[in-house]
């Protein structure tokens, strides 16, 4: 199976391959492109990335003592990490309270489940958390979030049967704050916003204008392909995206589409979902992620040497 693991193989091959440096670089770049495209990274991003890597590889001089090949791998690592928005773990602690988070995303991406995971995450950090069910379209959406809120023991607001998503969100945020919540998470309906769904993007915009969330989080399925870029851009244009959560990382999908979302919004990835259970949720770690794709042993050692 091709994919990000292939980068690891490419690194091994690159370190082994004899012959001229330039040829090894070209060959590695081809392998890297294949691996990234197989992992759903946006076509344009892939070519921009590999162009930068090639330029730096042929222009920059390795520091004394370092081999050219080690140096090249460091460049690859740096450029990949840049795509993730830097190699530090994201800050997930809200800068102040009360703090309102609004979750948005395409149908079925995992917003409702993630709302509960986030709530549990912050509850364990000691916050008082409340969930608002503002999806008035999907049948059973209210019950789904209410059941999850009960399971994890956080406050809940919803209006079963209502069709007024903006009204529910507004009243929900207000009431939960009054009840003492210092983090309020608003779950919204799934939407893609194309064609007949333009009105749904409008609704999202109105909701965000009404509740003025402190952070809008885009929830994106790890399996999403090339459309991720365009979709994330549309969402970002309607309501500026502050951060990204990648769900369903427990499957075989590599999550490269999330990189497109990062590029399209300028937002950073904060969390990943790794299962259906509310516990299966982690703070995103770009360094670990990239190190893993490039082959832990090789890259860690090299980074230390240089």
């Amino acid at each position: 199976m091709p994919g990000l693991d292939a980068i690891r193989d490419a690194v091994r091959k690159f370190l082994r391959l004899s012959g001229p440096y330039e040829r090894a670089v070209e060959e590695f770049i081809r392998d890297l492109q294949r691996a990234l495209l197989s992992a759903d990274v946006n076509v344009r991003l892939v070519f921009d990335l590999t162009r930068r890597i090639r330029e730096r590889a042929l222009k920059e001089k390795p520091p004394p003592g370092a081999s050219r090949r080690d140096w090249f791998l460091k460049i690859v690592y740096e450029e990949l990490v840049k795509l993730f928005g830097g190699d530090r773990e994201p800050e997930v602690k809200p800068p102040y309270t009360p703090y309102v988070i609004m979750l948005v995303g395409v149908q079925g991406s995992g917003k409702t489940t993630t709302a509960a995971k986030l709530a549990l995450f912050y509850k364990r950090m000691g916050y008082k958390v409340g969930l608002v069910a503002a999806d008035v379209y999907r049948p059973g959406a209210y019950d789904q979030l209410r059941q999850l809120a009960e399971r994890i023991g956080v406050m809940f607001y919803g209006e079963p049967g209502s069709r007024d998503a903006v009204g529910i969100a507004t009243r929900g945020v207000k009431e939960l704050k009054e009840r003492g919540a210092n983090i309020v998470i608003v779950d919204t309906a799934g939407r893609h916003g194309y064609g007949s769904e333009v009105a749904l993007l409008e609704e999202m915009k109105r909701m965000s204008e009404a509740i003025k969330p402190d952070e809008v989080m885009l929830v994106i399925d790890a399996a999403m392909g090339q459309k991720s870029f365009d979709l994330a851009k549309r969402f970002h244009e309607a309501t500026p995206i502050g951060s990204i959560i990648v769900t369903k990382m427990d499957g075989t999908a590599k999550g490269g589409g999330a990189l497109s979302a990062v590029a399209a919004t300028g937002a950073i990835i904060k969390f990943i979902g790794t299962g259906e259970d509310v516990e299966e949720f982690e703070v995103f770690n770009p360094r670990r992620f990239v190190s893993r794709l490039l082959g832990m042993g090789d890259i860690e050692g090299i980074l230390e040497r240089i």
Binding site: G3, D40, Q107, G108, G195, E197, A223, T252, A253, K254
Partner: peptide
């Protein structure tokens, strides 16, 4: 994206698939 291949193969091998419905085509 690429994961469609994996999904299809795994389910087909595990239980057999007779036909497929492709959803969210409107997106």
């Amino acid at each position: 994206g690429n994961d469609a291949v994996e999904q299809a193969k795994f389910f087909d091998e595990a239980v057999g698939v007779d036909f497929v419905v492709l959803t969210k085509f409107d997106a």
